[in-house]
Structure formats: C-alpha cells, structure tokens
Design a binder for these strands. Sequence first.
DNA 1: TTGACATCATTGCACCTGCAACGATATGTT
DNA 2: AACATATCGTTGCAGGTGCAATGATGTCAA
Lengths: 146, 146
Amino acid sequence: MTFNLDEFLPYRLNIAATLISRRFAALHQDESGLSIPEWRVMAHLANEGAVSVRDIHKRVNLDKSIVSRAASRLEGAGLLRKSAHKGDRRLISLELTTEGRRLMQRLGRIADAFQAEIRAELGKDAAGFEAGLDRLIARSASGGQP
Amino acid sequence: MTFNLDEFLPYRLNIAATLISRRFAALHQDESGLSIPEWRVMAHLANEGAVSVRDIHKRVNLDKSIVSRAASRLEGAGLLRKSAHKGDRRLISLELTTEGRRLMQRLGRIADAFQAEIRAELGKDAAGFEAGLDRLIARSASGGQP
DNA sequence: TTGACATCATTGCACCTGCAACGATATGTT
DNA sequence: AACATATCGTTGCAGGTGCAATGATGTCAA
C-alpha cells in the first residue's frame, strides 16, 4: 500500500480551497455578511450590469436554484433589483442597486488586497501555481482530456 | 471597478477543486460508491491501521460528526470494523475489514493513476503548482500570516 | 394558427454539513 | 474519596446544496 492521502492532489486542492475561502470570508464577513454564492452573484453583477439568472448560473458555476435563492436574499437586503426583461418575459434582469454598488466597491478593494497577500505568500511559485490552476480548470471543464 | 471574479484566486481555486473532485469521483464512483468523507476515512485507515474517530477528524480535516456518520455507514457496508479501545473506553478503534482493505487496494491504484494524469496535464507547471499548494495550506492552517 | 419542443426561473425534496448539546468516561486537584 | 474540568463519540437541528419537477413563456415547423 503505497498510496498516501496527504500527497493526493485532489485532497490537497480541496483543503487549500477550503482554507483560502475561510480566510477570505473572515476578512469580508463583518462588512458584508455575504455567503459565497451571494458574493459570486454580486461580483458578477458588478462587472456585467444587468444579466439574467441563467447568465450568472453559467458564468460563475452555480446551480440556477442557488442563484435564484441568492438573488432573492440579496433583493431583500436591498443590494440588487429584479426587473422584467424587455422582449423575453421568461428572463429576469438582475442589477445592483446603488447600495449594492457601494458595497461591491469596498469588497473589491478587500478582495484585491487579499489576492495580493496570497500572491506574496506564494512568492516565486505564484506564476506556476496560477498557470497550473488555469490549466486544470481548462482541461477539466471541457469534460476530460480531449 | 477593476475587480474581476474570473481572475480572483479563491474563486479559481474553488472551481478547480470542485472540477477535480468531480473527475475523480466519476472514476471511482462505480467501483466504490464512496462519498468524499467516506473516501478520506478509508484512505486514512488504509495507511494507519487502527485509529479513533478523533484521530481521523484531526488528520483529514473532517468534523468529528462527519467522521462518526461516515464510519457508521462504512461499518454497515462491511468495509470497516469498530471495536472498543483497550485502556480508554471513550475511544473507538476503527480498522478496515479484509473487504475494506481489498477495496482500498483497487482505489489506491485508481487514485495513483488519476494523480499521474493530472500531473501530466500540468506539465511543466506541476512542480510550481504543487509547491504553491503546499505553501498556501501551510500558511493558512497556522491561522493567517505569521 | 396550432402543436411539439426548448428554455427560463422557481420551488420541493432528500441529502449533507457544521455546530452545539449530550451522556459517558478520564484526568487532575484538593 | 470527591469534585470540577476535559475529552470522546453520538445525535439533533438549522441551514445550504444538487437535482428533478413545475409552470410560464418562446421558437419553430407544418
């Protein structure tokens, strides 16, 4: 039996992702109270303006049910606004309110600072690490190893 | 607004971990039917022999309630055995059955092959990627940036 | 126009997770 | 010995997640 869990890449990847998420959550939680899905929805809206649930679902890797519920909570918190999409009444337009935009400006700064901190910790391995990350995502997203 | 979610490291890390976990699950699911917690418990037992719930909880980053429930399911499936710990009756000794050991031999081979596949995909970035991963885990586990 | 089929957002449901009790047992102090 | 405190495994419970309906709307072809 040569296999060792501590050296297993999927395991280490999972641990690292969990720890980094916790660290980031600890940084912005007090200020925002956002969960991870809510954070992703807000971050996407901050970049893209008015989009549908389906757009977010596809772009930020969240099940559409999760996007839907997150949007409802965020609407209740006054951070985004839902409106009917002109032309296609199946769609819903989501966009940030002024308050939502203001929050995302602060969170954007926190996020940038945190990313800089991580890159500093990575030091000379930063470039290789990020290149590997992107390669894994690209290879895995397309369904395997084509 | 300069922030972009797609370039945000915690986000990319989370996506990569999820995708890799899915790929690995797809490989061994048919053969084993194990969930991620069950897989971790089994993998640890395969290396360590008889250990307690608390040991696993600390070593493989799972809440003790999750370890406890996973162990019960695995016991029901005939893959591990619970027995009283001599000397300290609060503890429970967990160890693989013959069937469990046999399963882990097959899964160990699958895991090793999968890891080789990932390293091949990473190519020249493999070393930097893994070094970065370990560094992030080490820095984050110790509570921050000491 | 009608009808078959696709797409969108929401909801229901079963499962998993994280956290906080809880009872049982150990340890340490007096 | 007796008590306070700590540790172990289990369980209850609230909340989150993934998946499969569901109903509303859109598209396309005959």
